[in-house]
Design a protein around this nucleic acid. Structure first.
Length: 424
RNA sequence: GGAGAGAUGGGUGAGUGGCUGAAACCACCGGUUUGCUAAAUCGACGAACUUCGAAAGGGGUUCCGCGGGUUCGAAUCCCGCUCUCUCCGCCA
């Protein structure tokens, strides 16, 4: 969520940013400025009345003590009048604040200047193309879901029986490979200086609001209504919320956290083409990395996170490319996002496996995540996160790219974890 | 799930209707002192909104778990909620 003052002071910048996103409701900007002004005016009136009440109350107390009841009674009448005025103002104030908040919740983050204009994923910029070789597959190669059936790696039909569509059951060497990937990703994150967390998989409304899943993406989360908790769609939510309502010291930066969690996404309305196999599921595993940074250093941090994800893909020897998301494809809360796509050779498709974003102060404003500078002034910190990495599509591309007539060859870096080198 | 107790500033903890944004102690920070470490001593020390100011800083309002109520006046009284702790039950 943007701050009203920021919007007021950077109106042109905000409007231009919204244009890059193809954002239609630009009128909300003026509305916000007006509502905020109105809010201040009402508040000032209320404060003045309250100040009068407070000082009168003191006098009344003194008068009673001195036994001057008549004078005191007279002042009580005034106070009563002021109180009813405040009550009326209070209602206005609530209305204005609600309207202001609603409007603010509808303004997405201002894109970074390097974000290209555009409306769909076709307008994303290829930031780094793949310049190496693409895997050459043997005759009769198969997409990963058929490989899975052949070798017994994961079972979607069994998932339907146990839960429903989109809940894969990994078994045998498939399960071990999954565990190996998680351990590999976590170990690499640890080497890069991230502290590992195992957070709760259910979060409360405050947390979901803090990172911006609510109210924007309510329909994407599973909601356990009896206890009013949400299944996390990504570890970003609990891990970033560790620092909700925290005032950091400048020297605490950078804060680097990682965690493996299953992720739950309803993916409402996204059935159809290209969702076969593991391409899109309701529950998947992911290792997430989160940075909390000083505003001046957050883009350096973003670069480091990109390098970290690249190193993972290099080590797995998967062909990948990096996209800089255009305004239209950029997430609501993000200022700049790079997507990583891995080439899955049997489907001959690029599959998104990671998304690395800088949210600048958009999340920290909701989170009330601040730091004190050298002069003891408080400022909002910057938050960033990225997948490092999301498992299902990595698994899909490993299966497809590494298939041979003899079986599926395990990438070398994973063998210490799997303790087998082929699935046959 | 049943019974009871509690929730005050970074921590411990006082405060039961006005003099309390909040004692005291500890921690943190700044100064003085000291052969070093330590100790001693003095001072500053919460947050949000807002207003004046170039800034330093000053003013107003709000905040003692959250929400509502009583009252001229609430940390203090009343109601609802949430959470924590203790005991019992159940249990990986």
């Amino acid at each position: 969520m943007l701050q009203p003052n920021f919007i007021k002071e950077n109106k042109d910048k905000v409007l231009n940013g919204l244009k890059v996103r193809n954002f239609k409701d630009a009128h909300l900007i003026d509305e916000i400025i007006d509502l905020d002004q109105k809010r201040k005016e009402i508040q000032a009136q209320m404060d003045n009345l309250q100040a009068s009440i407070n000082s009168s109350s003191k006098e009344i107390g003194a008068l009673f003590q001195q036994g001057k009841k008549d004078e005191a009674e007279g002042m009580r009448a005034n106070v009563g009048e002021w109180k009813s005025k405040i009550k009326i103002l209070q209602e206005d104030s609530t209305k204005v604040k609600t309207a202001l908040e609603d409007a603010l919740y509808n303004i997405p983050n201002v894109p970074h200047p390097t974000v290209p204009a555009g409306s769909t994923d076709e307008d994303n910029e290829v930031f780094k193309a793949w310049e190496g070789e693409f895997p050459k597959l043997h005759e009769g190669n198969l997409p990963h879901w058929e490989l899975s059936d052949k070798y017994g790696i994961f079972d979607l039909k069994l998932g339907v029986k146990l839960t429903g569509a989109g809940f894969p059951v990994y078994r045998g060497k498939g399960a071990k490979l999954q565990r190996a990937l998680i351990a590999f990703f976590l170990d690499e994150a640890e080497k890069a200086g991230y502290e590992e967390f195992i957070p709760p998989l259910l979060v409360n409304e405050d947390s979901a609001r803090g990172t911006g899943q609510l109210p924007d993406k309510e329909g994407q989360m599973y909601h356990a209504t009896v206890d009013d908790l949400y299944l996390i769609p990504t570890a970003e939510v609990p891990i970033t919320n560790v620092y909700r309502d925290v005032i950091l010291d400048e020297k605490d930066f950078p804060i680097k956290m990682t965690g493996y969690t299953p992720c739950f996404r309803r993916e409402a309305g996204s059935y159809g083409a290209h969702v076969r196999g593991l391409n899109r599921v309701h529950q998947f595993d992911k290792v997430e990395i989160v940075h909390i940074e000083h505003p001046e250093k957050s883009y350096d941090a973003l670069n480091k996170m990109i390098e970290h994800v690249e190193a993972l893909l290099d080590q797995l020897k998967l062909p990948y490319r990096i996209l800089r998301l255009c305004g239209g494809d950029l997430g609501f809360t993000s200022a700049l996002t790079f997507d990583f796509e891995v080439f899955s050779a049997a489907q001959e498709r690029w599959l998104e496996v990671s998304s690395v974003s800088n949210f600048e102060t958009f999340q920290s404003n909701r989170l009330k995540l601040r730091y004190r500078d050298a002069n003891n002034k408080k400022h909002l910190a910057h938050t960033l996160n990225g997948s490092a990495l999301a498992l299902p599509r990595i698994l899909a591309s490993i299966l497809e790219n590494n298939q041979t007539p003899e079986g599926i060859v395990i990438p070398e870096v994973l063998r210490p974890y799997t303790r087998f080198d082929i699935i046959d």
